[in-house]
């Protein structure tokens, strides 16, 4: 299992944002967001106002985790794409590089075909970014953590 620390740096964060901004435009999507497999939001783009992205992230990860469990039971490695169709909005969820989840919300301004096409290209770009990020994080010194220096007082202050 992959229990390594997940990190995100400025440079990669910007690259991810650029890629999903582009996806929103090219796919006529309402909202796109990227979540890590544990349910933490990494980045979002589009009409996110009024949207509870924290809850969405956690539920998406739960959804992927449950589906992954089902896949295993059936002897599949993973179901890498999920699609939920609603009356107005649809949800396209896909797994990227085994560790992050790409979620696209779209309505009648787009179509499943277009979303699929654009997601494919986005997946390639995001895979590249997250693979280089993983390498960078692995080579970073453990001691360079910004938390190496925190004191018991810092921690106590959080709770005062």
């Amino acid at each position: 299992m992959d229990n390594a620390q997940m990190v995100m740096y400025e440079e990669e964060a910007q690259q991810v944002t650029e890629v999903i901004d582009q996806l929103v435009k090219e796919a006529n999507a309402k909202v796109v967001f990227v979540v890590d497999k544990n349910g933490q939001l990494i980045s979002s783009s589009g009409e996110t106002e009024g949207l509870d992205t924290t809850s969405l992230a956690s539920l998406t990860a739960g959804n992927i985790a449950a589906t992954g469990g089902l896949a295993k039971l059936l002897g599949e490695k993973e179901f890498s794409i999920l699609f939920h169709e609603g009356e107005k909005d649809n949800l396209h969820i896909s797994l990227i590089a085994q560790r992050v989840i790409l979620v696209v919300i779209f309505d009648e301004r787009s179509s499943l075909g277009l979303i699929r096409l654009r997601v494919k290209k986005t997946t390639e770009k995001l895979t590249e970014i997250f693979e280089s990020l993983a390498k960078k994080a692995a080579s970073a010194e453990a001691g360079s953590s910004p938390f190496a220096e925190i004191t018991d007082d810092d921690i106590d202050n959080l709770f005062s």
Binding site: Q5, M8, E10, A13, Q40, F147
Partner: peptide, 15 residues
């Protein structure tokens, strides 16, 4: 697995 985001300066932990 905590998540340290240097870009948004956030740290997330799961309990």
């Amino acid at each position: 697995m905590s998540f340290i985001n240097y870009s948004s300066r956030e740290i997330n932990c799961k309990i």
